[in-house]
Structures are given as structure tokens and as C-alpha cells.
Design a protein around this nucleic acid. Structure first.
Lengths: 222, 222
DNA sequence: CGACAATTCAAACGACCGTTTGAAACAATC
DNA sequence: GATTGTTTCAAACGGTCGTTTGAATTGTCG
């Protein structure tokens, strides 16, 4: 029963921190949610801050299969990009992975605490390097563009991050029903095609074919 | 001296709310910052929550000239898009407009409170409609795409929002010096060209010419 | 069973929270 | 100068915060 209380605390705290922020989540609510005494935080972690760090560490450990697949340099770059994008999108709604993992990381990145540097080094930086490698493979010379090509990479990931950070806005703008009809596959296809077209590596977005290009579908999806 | 205390309170509170969030900002800190007594919040606004709403209303009132310019349907759509993007970017660093205005809105949109619906209706919705109109003018038929073309609009604005929401990450990834070298004009040009290329209305990003197309520059910039 | 460590518990700690009070200070009008 | 309404102030309110305490409980092993 020892590790159990610790684990339940991290899970309850992670959900609370992700939803209401560090200041907004009270230790009493967290402990009540986890079904443990308030003193358990002090016993297992020391204090609230250390519990928060433990949540971040837990959130860092899980990584999507799809994102890993994208790292395989033997695949065609279009498929790698699609896998990368789909992987990031899927991580948001992965039922095997607690929802709060992504939300907590996003909070930490938007309003960094002292723990942000570690998260960036271990979690964000590898993702960024993978994407840069894919983009360079896709369009040689992109790394040599102004500001080392970072803005191109940002233009790609920003489209993915939008649906994680600004989901409430998108929901209200589109209408709930229409928004809930968006699924991971559709968004991954859209963002991939938008980005490929911008890089001159695919047909533009408003073409006659609304279906994703066959080359992408056959190598990555399902 | 009456309206002065009220105004100083809104300014101090806006900065505090934007930086540390509603829960993280204490009324004592805010009042100390504004140079007023703690009871002033109750006297001028009623309570902390109403002060927060007052800050949001203040933040809504200011709008960038550039964004307005983009609403002019007589301009060529490429120039309107560039104006729209540059306007949103410029609002982030506008010295005439307190920095907290944008930050507070972004917080409200990422983690909506009960006041979010009003903000969306009065501030976000008009922006979204303007963009949709520009995109439809740019690429007729985009509104008829799946999900009413919303994903296309999201792909454009997300690139702008990235630099507002994830600035700390971008800073750490690129390195401080390189990041601070990014200016509004460069980013506006980059995002516009990326989006136009995706829509098939311009050369792709990694072309021989790193300079923005003349048609955009001459109508909008400076 | 008895000894010992690991874990949980109810209760309380001081500090800070948002809010309120009633009097003092100020401004404007007669 | 007296009157009236507006604004500021120091002080305190009850409540919740994160944290601590020391005893009670549980689990482990000789």
C-alpha cells in the first residue's frame, strides 16, 4: 500500500495542477481526491512544490509511439512529418495516457517555473531536434534559412499546439458539435498537407482532392 | 484623484493577473503595487472577481490599427492577410499598449473563466470572421472545405499565437540572443509567406528569394 | 507473540487569503 | 464655516492555505 498512495497522489495532483494551476490547486482537495491524509504529501514528497515536480517528471516519461516512429530516418520524410504531427496530436487524446500529462506540460511551457529548464531539455528539445531533422530532410537548406530555420519549425508545431492550448476557443468558435467531429486523423492530415504545401512539397490546401495524399496514408496511418 | 486610483488598480491588477494568474495574484500585492489601500478594491469594484472582469474589459478595448486596416475589403487579399498577421504580432509588443493586455486575454482563452464567453464574442469572434473573409477572398472555396474551413484559419492564427504563448520555449530553444533578434516585420513576413504558399498563392518558403514578395511589402509595411 | 520500522491519522500550527468595518480625510456646495 | 457626499485609511474579521506534530495503525521479521 506504500507506492499506491504515492501514485494516487501524483495522479490526483497532476489532474489538479493541470486543470487549476499550481496556486489554484489546494493540497486538501488533492489529498481528498487521492483518498489520503493531508500529511501524506509531507511524508511522501516533502512539500507541495516537490509533489509538483514529481508530477512533471511523471508526465515527461510517457511518449507517444507515433512520435518515436517519426524518428526513423529510413522512412520518406513526408511520412516522418505526418507521423510526427499525428503523434503529437494523438498524445493529447491517448486513452492509455492520463489527460493531464500534456496539459501540465503545456502549462509549464506557457508559464515556466524553475522546473521548466529540465522539462525542456529532456522532453521538448529532443522533439524539436527530430522535427528539424525531418524538415531538413524534406527541404534541404531550411536549416540555413534566417534564424537557423527555427521559424519554419515553429510554423509546423504551432498548428499542433493550437488544438491543445486553444481547444476551448476553437470549440466556441466552431460550435461544440462541429468541433467534436474533428478527429486526430483528419487534423494530422490537414496540418501535414498545409505544411508540406508551404514547403513546396505537396499540392496546396484548397485543391480538388480533399483526401490526403496516398503516399502519406499508406505508410503511417493505422 | 478618484478615477486615478481606479485606473492604477486596473493596471496593477492586470499585470499581476497576466503574470501570476487569478489565484496567484493577491489583492495585497496588487494594492501595494498600485499604491492604494486594500479596501480600495472593495470600494471601486466590489471584489477581486469584479476587478478581474474590469481588467479583461480594459484589455478588450484596445485594438491594433494594423488589424483594422486588414478589414478594408478594397485592398488585395495578400496585403490584408499580411496586415492581419502583422497586426496581431504587433499588438504583442506595442509600447503604447500595456503588455498585460494580450497576456491576460491569452490566459483567459487557454483557461476560460465565466468571463470568457464575453471576451470571445466581442474580441475573438470579430477577428475570426475577418480572417475567414480574407481567406475566402484569397482562395475562394476555402469556407466550403471540411469543417467549414476552420482548420485553415486555425493553421494561420496558430502561427501567430505561438510567439505569444510559447515565447519562453522559443527563447530557450533558439537561445536568447537569436530569439531577441526576431522582430515583428520578419515574423509577419515569414508567417504570411508560409500561409500563402500553403494556400497556393505564393512561392514556397525555401525559395531562392529570402525577401518578402514586393506586392506585400509595398502596400502594408511601415 | 514481541520488536521495530513504515505508514496513516486527527488535530493543530502560524501565515496569508479576500473582505469588512467605522472612523478619518478630503472635496464640493451653500 | 457648516453640511454633505466621496474617497482613503488602519485594523480586524473569519476562513483557508501549506505544513507539522505525535500518537495510532499497519506491516515485517525474528
Amino acid at each position: 500500500m506504500a507506492e499506491d498512495a504515492r501514485g494516487r497522489l501524483i495522479d490526483a495532483a497532476g489532474r489538479a495542477f493541470a486543470e487549476r494551476g499550481f496556486e489554484g490547486a489546494s493540497v486538501r482537495d488533492i489529498c481528498s481526491d487521492a483518498g489520503v491524509n493531508v500529511a501524506a504529501i509531507n511524508y511522501h514528497f516533502g512539500d507541495k512544490q516537490s509533489l509538483y515536480v514529481a508530477c512533471l517528471e511523471q508526465a515527461q516519461c510517457s511518449e507517444s509511439q507515433q512520435t518515436l516512429r517519426a524518428a526513423d530516418p529510413s522512412l520518406p520524410p513526408e511520412a516522418r512529418l505526418h507521423g510526427f504531427i499525428r503523434g503529437m496530436l494523438a498524445a493529447q487524446g491517448d486513452p492509455d495516457r492520463p489527460r493531464w500529462h500534456n496539459a501540465l506540460m503545456l502549462r509549464e511551457m506557457a508559464h515556466p517555473t524553475s522546473a521548466a529548464a529540465e522539462v525542456l531539455k529532456r522532453y521538448i528539445r529532443p522533439l524539436a531536434e527530430t522535427l528539424r531533422e525531418i524538415l531538413e530532410q524534406l527541404s534541404p537548406g531550411v536549416s540555413g534559412m534566417p534564424h537557423d530555420g527555427w521559424p519554419v519549425g515553429f510554423s509546423v508545431v504551432s498548428q499542433v499546439l493550437f488544438y491543445a492550448v486553444h481547444r476551448p476557443v476553437a470549440r466556441l468558435l466552431m460550435g461544440e458539435a462541429e468541433h467534436d467531429a474533428l478527429d486526430v486523423d483528419f487534423l494530422a492530415d490537414h496540418i501535414t498537407r498545409f505544411s508540406l504545401a508551404a514547403l513546396g512539397r505537396g499540392p496546396n490546401i484548397v485543391g480538388p482532392s480533399a483526401a490526403p495524399s496516398a503516399g502519406i496514408r499508406k505508410t503511417v496511418s493505422r
